[in-house]
């Protein structure tokens, strides 16, 4: 079903909208939540919470990019749940991916306290704009969706080793991009 039709169901307050949303993007959402939480059970609950959030938000909101929008809701809920869950495993795909970025960007002695998340996001967007569509997708799949290299390889159609090498180069390029602008995260 087209995104627009799903939104119409939400606007008509038809619960079929949630079913259609789940049918279309449920697997993607559960994968995203699992990458952050490392638990299938928690991921399923998180996605259900996200659907509830979507039900409450739409209407009045009418997301222009429904897939990305619902993914962001899932991600936010998963991150909040993760912070509360003291027993959360720290070897989830999210931690590994985040650790990679931290290692690549860390600059001892210079801490970007003054840097706002929005400012950094704006710079990240500038960096993404310098990449090919494929490298952009690889970067975002890894550091937004926290997908494993194997999952990215399967999606893009290249080897896992190839993904690993590209990510290494992308992190290096990101560090240089930020440093050239005087930003040390």
């Amino acid at each position: 079903m087209e995104d627009e039709a799903i939104l119409e169901l939400f606007f008509a307050r038809s619960e079929q909208g949630i079913s259609e949303l789940d049918a279309k993007y449920g697997a993607l959402c559960r994968s995203l939540a699992y990458n952050i939480l490392g638990s299938r059970e928690d991921a399923a609950e998180c996605v259900n919470d996200a659907y509830l959030g979507a039900w409450r938000a739409i209407p009045p909101e009418r997301p222009e990019r429904l897939r990305a929008w619902v993914c962001r809701v899932v991600r936010n809920i998963a991150l909040a749940r993760r912070r509360k869950n003291t027993a959360a495993r720290r070897d989830a795909s999210f931690d590994v991916a985040l650790g990679e970025l931290e290692d690549a960007l860390a600059s001892p002695g210079e801490v970007g306290d003054a840097l706002e998340a929005r400012e950094l996001a704006h710079m990240l967007e500038g960096f993404l704009d310098t990449l090919s569509a494929e490298n952009r997708a690889i970067f975002v799949r890894r550091y937004w969706f926290s997908d494993s290299c194997a999952e990215i390889a399967a999606q893009v159609g290249i080897s896992e080793g190839n993904v690993t090498v590209r990510l290494t180069r992308l992190r290096r390029a990101l560090r240089k991009y930020l440093e050239d602008r005087g930003v040390y995260v």
Partner: peptide, 25 residues
């Protein structure tokens, strides 16, 4: 660092997220 990076990634324009979710070679 982790918090800032996590928040910043969450602030990315959804067009990048949508593109990555849909990307096929």
């Amino acid at each position: 660092n982790a918090d800032l990076i996590t928040k910043a990634m969450g602030e990315l324009d959804l067009k990048y997220v949508d593109e990555a979710a849909a990307y096929t070679r």
